[in-house]
Computed example of a mutant assay.
Amino acid sequence: MASGFQHEKYFTELEEIILDIFNCLPYEQQPKYVADMGCGDGTLLKRVYETVRDKSARGKVLAEYPLRMLGLDFNRESLQETDRTLAEIPHLVLPGDIGNPGEIATNLLQIGITDPENILHIRSFLDHDRPFIFPQNKAREQARSHLSYDCISVNPLGELIPPPTAIQSLVEHLQRWAEIVTPYGLIILEVHSLTPDVVYTFLDRCENLHFDAYQAFSMQHLVEADVFLLAAAEVGLFPKPEFSKKYPKTFPFSRITLNWLEKRFYTIDKPISQIYSP
């Protein structure tokens, strides 16, 4: 509940994307479902539905073209709370693990969602909180050893995860999601770490001195905003620039980003394969 309240101001910015999607005709080509991975208490799903209902063209024809909210979360208490929050809204709740999108697709099928291609996927502040999975592509992991990364991640024993390993794990995590992303894309709100020199320069204007530390020690895997977007580009996920937001808006660093990612037929990996080839 606290998370939903704290993030309310960012949900307001997300409305712009939702309205662009649900104002676009014909109605038959709009999503039939909105799935929130890590739905918490259902605040974001409720906000999205009310935005569609009250402000979009789709809202005028919901009887003919219904929209269903899908709440996914690893925590059963969160699913129960989402169920209560969405009591007056068409919805389903089901278990879901941010680290295993393939399983989510199976779970959706079991509850009767046979057309997952009609899902718009959204999530807020969850990718850094995924369970760490060691990379499978060791060659790519090794290729990253020549790159300078500033991210700090630790494993359950409190041991440092080498930054190239952490980044390759992120890339493979996003690759798994790219495999189930529909033509409607993936809307992500995410929080980021800052490099030490930026933290030092803006010590009195950002929270990252303590935020990055306790996130790392609690086994959450923050990376800088540009690193996150480049990791997404490696698997063919690219933001629509006109809908991208950064926070804070008035300082030259990005603690939080909002991006509407779409799957394209190409990827970007030249920094590794050409400049830093082992």
Score class of each variant (00 low, 15 high):
Gly4Met: 06
Thr165Asp: 03
Leu258His: 14
Pro31Gln: 12
Glu190Lys: 04
Thr12Ile: 15
Ile180Trp: 03
Asp54Glu: 15
Tyr27Thr: 09
Glu179Val: 00
Glu64Trp: 00
Arg176Met: 13
Val191Gly: 13
Ser244Gln: 15
Leu258Glu: 11
Ser277Thr: 09
Lys246Ile: 10
Pro116Asp: 11
Phe125Tyr: 09
Lys249Pro: 02
Pro90Ala: 05
Leu258Gly: 14
Asn137Gln: 09
Gln110Met: 08
Ala57Asp: 07
Val181Phe: 04
Arg53Lys: 15
Gly42Lys: 05
Lys270Ile: 13
Tyr276Thr: 07
Glu172Phe: 01
Ile152Glu: 13
Arg47Ser: 14
Thr51Ile: 11
Lys263Thr: 04
Val61His: 11
Leu44Thr: 08
Leu14His: 03
Glu234Lys: 10
Ala233Tyr: 05
Ile113Asn: 05
Cys39Glu: 05
Asn23Ala: 04
Thr182Arg: 04
Val93Ile: 10
Ala63Met: 06
Asn137Glu: 12
Asp204Ile: 00
Pro196Thr: 04
Leu261Pro: 04
Glu141Gly: 02
Tyr184Arg: 02
Thr201Leu: 11
Ser3Val: 11
Leu126Pro: 00
Leu109Thr: 13
Pro241Tyr: 11
Tyr10Asn: 10
Leu222Tyr: 13
Leu72Cys: 10
Arg140Asn: 13
Pro248Met: 03
Arg58Tyr: 05
Glu262Ala: 06
Ile133Gln: 10
Val171Met: 06
Glu16Cys: 09
Ser218Pro: 01
Leu230Met: 11
Gln274Gly: 00
Gln142His: 09
Gln6Glu: 07
Leu194Lys: 07
Ser169Cys: 07
Phe202Cys: 07
Thr257Val: 10
Gly71Tyr: 04
Leu189Ala: 11
Val61Gly: 00
Pro196Ala: 07
Val52Lys: 08
Phe211Ala: 10
Met69Ser: 08
Leu147Pro: 00
Thr257Ala: 11
Pro163Thr: 09
Leu209Lys: 11
Glu88Asn: 14
Asn155Phe: 06
Pro26Leu: 05
Ile187Thr: 13
Ile98Glu: 05
Gln142Gly: 05
Glu234Met: 12
Lys46Ile: 09
Glu77Trp: 00
Ile188Gln: 09
Pro163Ile: 08
Phe251Gly: 00
Pro183Asn: 04
Gly59Ala: 08
Ser244Lys: 15
Leu174Val: 01
Arg144Phe: 07
Asp54Gly: 03
Ser78His: 10
Leu229Tyr: 03
Ser124Val: 02
Ser193Trp: 01
Val154Asp: 01
Glu242Cys: 09
Tyr200Ile: 04
Ala63Arg: 06
Asn75His: 02
Ile17Val: 15
Lys55Tyr: 14
Leu92Asp: 14
Asp129Ala: 15
Val93Ala: 02
His91Ile: 01
Ser193Arg: 11
Gln215Ser: 14
Ile122Ser: 07
Asp150Cys: 07
Ala57Ser: 05
Pro241Met: 12
Thr114Ala: 09
Leu186Ala: 03
Ala57Asn: 09
Phe228Gly: 01
Glu16Val: 14
Ala35Met: 14
Ile275Trp: 04
Arg58Ser: 08
Glu262Tyr: 08
Lys245Val: 12
Lys9Leu: 08
Ala105Val: 12
Gln110Gly: 01
Tyr65Gln: 10
Lys32Val: 10
Ala216Asn: 12
Asp41Glu: 05
Asp36Cys: 05
Asp226Arg: 13
Glu262Arg: 11
